Simulated scan of single mutants.
Amino acid sequence: MNRVKWGIFVLLFVVIFAFIGYAQKEPYSTEKVLQSAWDKFELESFQIGVSDPIIWVEIAEGENEEDVRKYLEKELSKPDLKKFQINIKTS
């Protein structure tokens, strides 16, 4: 009987920690990635195409286009990178 109680305790412990880890992870969205880029870089605007699979990003003059592109390619999901073309323009 003692082994059964110990097994239930360990299982409950694992389930609780798994739930805590899952609950703390924010769900992914393309817009959240672009919003984080907005906060990290001086983006003037961004738009996610609905009919055209393009992400348009306008950056402030002086921002490095290549840094923004690398950041987006790192943070966007693989399906987003396959679906969307990334267009970056300096204002």
Rank of each mutant, 00 (worst) to 15 (best):
K89C: 03
R3Q: 09
E66K: 01
E63H: 00
D52W: 05
A18G: 15
V15Q: 02
P27I: 10
K89I: 14
I55E: 10
I16R: 04
L43G: 06
F19R: 07
F17G: 05
K70Q: 08
A23M: 14
V14Q: 00
G7M: 11
N87Q: 13
Q24H: 11
K32I: 04
K74S: 12
G49C: 07
G21I: 08
V15Y: 03
L76I: 08
L34Y: 06
I86F: 08
Y28F: 11
I55Y: 10
N64E: 11
E65A: 09
E61N: 03
G21Q: 12
I8R: 06
I20P: 00
I88H: 08
S45F: 04
V15P: 01
K70S: 07
D52P: 08
E58N: 11
E61Q: 08
S45L: 00
E31C: 02
A37Q: 03
I48M: 05
L72A: 07
P53T: 10
Q24P: 00
A37Y: 07
K5E: 11
K32Y: 08
E65K: 13
E58T: 14
E26D: 07
V68Q: 02
Y28V: 04
Q35P: 00
A37W: 06
G49W: 07
G21A: 13
V33L: 12
P79H: 13
S51T: 13
D80N: 14
G7D: 05
S29A: 11
A18Q: 05
S36C: 04
K78I: 13
F46H: 04
I16K: 03
L43T: 08
I20R: 02
N87H: 12
S29I: 11
V57F: 12
G21V: 10
S91K: 13
E75K: 10
P79N: 12
I48T: 04
K32W: 05
T30N: 04
E75I: 01
K70R: 09
S77G: 05
Q47K: 14
Q35T: 10
K83Y: 13
E44Y: 13
